[in-house]
Design a binder for these strands. Structure first.
Lengths: 197, 197
DNA sequence: CTATTAATTGACCAAGCGGTCATAAATGTT
DNA sequence: AACATTTATGACCGCTTGGTCAATTAATAG
């Protein structure tokens, strides 16, 4: 069915590699040359396939988000009690960012993108907002369901989400060089306890 | 006493202007041209006085931090009960970053710097760590003093600080476009309540 | 075997970057 | 008034940046 010379690479693989590079170094500090080196592609191929650097970044950010969202959803659904699943997924995502060569951590790519590009770039800002909202909804569903099953929390779901998401954002940043994974886990667990989760 | 042609500008004023520009746009996205435009200086003057872009950035980051640290300290000391002062200073610093042209906020400059430059730059990382530790000590002093005056908290001071600093970091980021100042204040107050502050 | 289509390749480009430097101008000292 | 010292000024530089493009190669369809 396909006519013409076939690609030697799988675009999806390239996006994953791009995620890795952008995640580590950020958007601005990643040069197109860096991407070429990491992917082994030639300039023309990359530009023909992905348009330009920013488009590739947005594709990477989006794929990153879909991955992490799916990860959460799966963990939540794998537990009989979704609330247990929710807590489990938060803790697992904490270590997802992984420790790099030195002891620093790369944090959450979405958080990094927000800090770096807002308010400089409206499109990425809009993308991050959508992702943030969708993630909030996922958590909201779990909390509301738990409540309707008789569970009582310290605060209404919206406030619980606000505190939880804010803390996660903070952990993502502070893991970069202020705290280690163990401390982060302790902080997160303390917050669960405080919120009555 | 001074020999040679006198400066037409005050270096300290320039650093404040540099803070403003770097804070808004970040390190990489701020060009030397931006700085010249904002300060009205000429290239040679800037380089002669401050060395280079990164040195100026570090000077700006340091001054920013000293400002904010002093601000906190003053507010804490201005209250008969330092614990009240502590809470007040946190809330005040929240609005310190200010709303920009659009509805986005520039967050905390130190947080921005950590996200942008760690792990790319070891010096800035070290600077941020020092500042973080010194700030922690300031809070620790207040909590320990309150405890020795009979106040009881939900957690030991170290954990309280961990939760508080992490939340503040998260608020700084999320204020950029996820939440507004009012929501941020509510979240912060809820956290105070949870921690028994 | 030829035509068609698309991917590969590397040379190329303008613009912007951070940074330098020789010269001119302004002050205090002698 | 001449000198020493410092700052002001803007032309200048090499390099890197993101991005383009024409020629070449490789596959498939007829």
């Amino acid at each position: 069915m396909t006519v013409g010379r076939p690609r030697k690479f799988n675009p999806d693989d390239i996006v994953r590699i791009a995620i890795d590079v952008f995640w580590k170094k950020g958007y601005e500090q990643t040069s197109v040359a860096d991407l070429l080196k990491a992917t082994g592609l030639h300039k023309g191929s990359l530009y023909q396939t992905f348009g330009d650097k920013k488009t590739l970044f947005k594709a990477a950010l989006n794929t990153y988000y879909e991955d992490i969202y799916t990860k959460h959803k799966n963990i939540i659904n794998s537990e009989p009690d979704p609330l247990i699943g929710l807590k489990k997924s938060f803790k697992e995502v904490l270590s997802y960012s992984g420790t790099m060569g030195d002891q620093s951590n790369r944090g959450c790519m979405v958080v990094n993108a927000i800090v770096e590009t807002v308010p400089n770039d409206a499109e990425i800002k809009a993308l991050a907002e959508r992702q943030f909202q969708r993630f909030n909804s996922l958590i909201l569903g779990v909390l509301v369901m738990s409540e309707s099953n008789g569970r009582k929390f310290k605060y209404p779901p919206e406030m619980t989400i606000g505190l939880l998401m804010t803390l996660m954002t903070g952990l993502s940043v502070n893991l970069k060089d202020m705290i280690n994974l163990e401390q982060a886990n302790q902080i997160l667990e303390a917050q669960f306890e405080l919120l009555g989760l």
